[in-house]
C-alpha cells in the first residue's frame, strides 16, 4: 500500500506564535517565519510522529485537508 501523503497546514488566525511546533518537531519541518508564524519548510522530512499536532496548544495545525476546509471561515 502506498503511504498517503502527509498534509500539514498552520491556520494563522488561530496560531499564537508560541513556537512550540518549531522547537519540538524532531525533523525540523517548521521554521520560524519573519512574521513570527511557523512556516512549513521541509514537509518531506515529516515522519508523522504527531508531536506538532499534539503539542500545539491552539489546535492550529491541520493534518487533514477536508478538516481544514470545514474550518475555513472560522
Amino acid at each position: 500500500m502506498e503511504k498517503s501523503k502527509t498534509f500539514l497546514f498552520v491556520k494563522k488566525n488561530w496560531c499564537k506564535k508560541c513556537g512550540i511546533c518549531v522547537e519540538f518537531c524532531p525533523k525540523g519541518v517548521f521554521k520560524l517565519g519573519k512574521d513570527g508564524y511557523p512556516e512549513i519548510v521541509a514537509l518531506d522530512k515529516c515522519v508523522e510522529c504527531k508531536l506538532c499536532i499534539s503539542l500545539c496548544p491552539d489546535f492550529a495545525i491541520f493534518s487533514n485537508p477536508e478538516k481544514k476546509k470545514d474550518y475555513e471561515d472560522r
Partner: peptide, 16 residues
Amino acid sequence: FPHVWCPGCGDGIVLN
C-alpha cells in the same frame, strides 16, 4: 477561535 488561553499555555495541550 482562537481560544482565550495565552500563547504557549498548557491548557490546550491537556484538552487535546
